[in-house]
Amino acid sequence: MATKKMAIIATKGTLDMAYPPFILGSTAAALGYDVQIFFTFYGLQLLRKDLSSVMISPLANPAMPMPVPMPVMVQMLPGMESMATMMMKQKLKKHGVASLEELRNLCLEADVKFIACQMTVDLFEFEKSEFIDQVEYGGAATFMGFAGDTDICLFV
């Protein structure tokens, strides 16, 4: 039987939206899939050596469960984003959910291939030295080359 394949496009760079690509990528690899994740636009933040700037904001995020209801005016205040991120990280830890770093490392150990979109790297004037060494660079045609032959293809 041919090896199954999965491709994911990761376009978001917030803490909550960083989880699905790494969870699905590491799980699919554990199930024997050949996996590629294509990081573009804000998803590029997930390839940084240091992931501490990946945050979650309660602002414009009405579905986010909060310990106490919080008016939008309060959510705007300085420091609220850091606080929400700290609280979310504590919650993740308490429930035994792996950190982003751990999940990303599990992906890399399982040979999940990370492709950074060259166009958006140039657009945001990122330096390749800001990203982890295992990243490869390519464009839409590179993604199609792999995605066209996959069993599962997701846009996150």
Partner: peptide, 14 residues
């Protein structure tokens, strides 16, 4: 013990 999805599966594979 204490691990959440997907860790039990990924660790099993490893």
């Amino acid at each position: 013990r204490g691990m959440s999805c997907p860790l039990p599966i990924v660790k099993t594979k490893k």
